[in-house]
Amino acid sequence: MTWQTLAAAPSGLGESPFWHPDEQMLYWIDIPGQHIHRCNVFMGTVESWAMPSEPGSIAPARSAGEASGLVIALRDGIYRAREWGGELRLLAKAGHDTATMRFNDGKADPLGRFWAGTMYEPRDKAAAELFSLDCRGGRAPALERKAGGATIANGLAWSPDAATVYWSDTPSHTIRAWDWDAGSNAMARPRVFAQWPGKPDGWQPGMPGYGGRPDGAAMDSEGNYYAAMFEGGRLLKLSPAGQVLAEIAVPARCPTMPCFGGDDLKTLYLTTARHNRPAQELQDYPDSGCVFSMQVDVPGLPVNFFQD
């Protein structure tokens, strides 16, 4: 398996990729660059859409069963755009102090709710939380708190049978899991799914002895969880029991989030970061910040659409 580099300018911090099955396009965001990108991977053309603040995550949306734009988590709230480049309509205002907190990793769940976690930027306490937004059937938008005790929310995913939800806290090097009842949106039996040692004292980028920390994630059709290990230069494939099945080296020190795409969902895409990375690292990994792809044998799960 070998990585290919998408023909697009690198992002500062690429995140939240998804394959849009109707448009046959790959979407992702650049958080510090405050842009949403989408690429026709067959033509190599990229469109970019500037945001008024940092986009933490995005998901495709449907209204009355028809594909209709995006749902977007910005620093201060969750917004709805009916079309590419269209008006941003506020669905739910954030309850946090936007001077120190912003929305981060998020996705739609299998029933069409949008979930987004937050990131506490001072990073000195576990103040980040996970929220769910349900607008199905004309419901009045309201954020429901689902979990907390994190510093940087990441790694959101659901098992193929929609019975388990996963959520990681990057600084604590921990991925948690809960039993999930899709209909009632209830989470139960919290547990540690996987955990790794923290960064060794004195470690600097390029030194051995550190495998990275869990950032964004994707799920394949067999229930295996793919975790991007930030600063570890690798992508891990974890079994439903949390065992490492495969370690895939990445041509960037800081992979951020995988997703599956293509008609057969056997193309694995991966966003990466270059923002604030050391000069030597960028020399060693000149394509840092680019989107990479490779072919895999087991297909992934299709993207979930937000529904309103």
Rank of each mutant, 00 (worst) to 15 (best):
M1I: 15
L6T: 07
L6V: 11
P10M: 05
P10D: 00
S11Q: 05
L13F: 10
G14K: 13
P17N: 06
H20P: 05
D22N: 11
D22K: 13
D22Y: 08
E23K: 11
M25K: 15
Y27S: 00
W28H: 05
I29H: 07
I29R: 04
I36N: 00
C39D: 01
V41E: 10
F42E: 12
M43I: 08
M43N: 10
E47P: 03
W49N: 00
M51T: 00
S53F: 12
A61T: 04
S63A: 13
S68W: 07
G69S: 05
A73F: 00
R75N: 12
I78R: 01
Y79R: 02
Y79H: 06
R80W: 01
G85T: 02
E87V: 06
L90V: 02
L90R: 12
A92L: 10
K93D: 03
A94S: 15
D97G: 11
D97T: 08
T98N: 11
T98H: 15
K107T: 00
A108M: 03
L111D: 08
A116K: 01
A116G: 03
G117I: 00
G117R: 06
G117T: 02
T118M: 05
Y120R: 04
P122W: 14
A126M: 15
A126Q: 15
E129T: 11
F131Q: 04
S132V: 02
D134S: 08
C135Y: 06
G137I: 04
G138S: 09
P141V: 11
A142F: 08
L143R: 02
A147T: 08
G149I: 08
G149D: 14
G155E: 03
A162S: 13
Y166A: 00
Y166P: 00
W167Y: 13
D169G: 02
D169L: 03
T170K: 13
T174M: 07
I175F: 03
W180I: 05
P190T: 10
A194S: 14
Q195D: 04
W196A: 05
W196C: 03
P197E: 12
P197D: 10
P200G: 13
G202V: 08
W203V: 04
P214V: 01
A217M: 03
M219E: 03
M219T: 09
S221V: 15
E222T: 11
N224R: 15
A228N: 06
A228V: 09
M229G: 02
G232N: 09
G233D: 09
R234I: 01
R234M: 08
K237C: 13
A241D: 15
Q243W: 07
V244Y: 10
L245T: 07
L245Y: 12
A246E: 15
A246M: 14
E247F: 13
E247L: 08
R253W: 14
P255E: 10
P258K: 04
C259F: 13
F260P: 07
G261Q: 09
G262R: 14
D263Y: 08
L265D: 06
K266N: 13
T267F: 07
L268S: 05
L270F: 12
R274I: 00
N276M: 14
E281G: 04
Q283A: 14
D284V: 09
D287W: 09
S288M: 05
C290P: 00
F292P: 01
M294A: 13
Q295P: 09
P299I: 10
P299S: 12
P299M: 12
L301P: 00
L301C: 05
P302M: 03
N304F: 12
F306I: 02
